[in-house]
Amino acid sequence: MSSIIEMPLVRLVAGFVIWSIGFVVLYAAQALGCAYGWGDWHRPALIAVYAAVLVPLTWMSLPGRNEGRSGALFAAALWANRSALLAALLVFMPVTFASLCS
């Protein structure tokens, strides 16, 4: 039902929706890895998720994507998506070094 959820509004929240999904997956994987003893695979798995989240966010933060489209909402969406990229980059960074299960 494309008339219900209009594209620009989706675009406005898309970056942070991806951030949220990344957050949930990482938090869950951290807990599952400790509970079920993923051992040496635990951290690489988390880092893989980290990298996987950054790819679409980077793509969405490129300025060229909005050519031909103007208007306040697209500009706001671009900045919201860039904020999401920054948030993902920083918030998930600890998977590279912090203690996994203690």
Binding site: L86, L90, P94, F97, A98, S99, S102
Partner: peptide, 22 residues
């Protein structure tokens, strides 16, 4: 704010690692 927050959070996380009972 961004550089301040990165520096502060980074420091606090490193300190937090050192304080863990390990």
């Amino acid at each position: 704010p961004i550089p301040i927050l990165i520096l502060l959070t980074g420091t606090a996380l490193v300190l937090g690692e050192q304080l863990l009972p390990r």
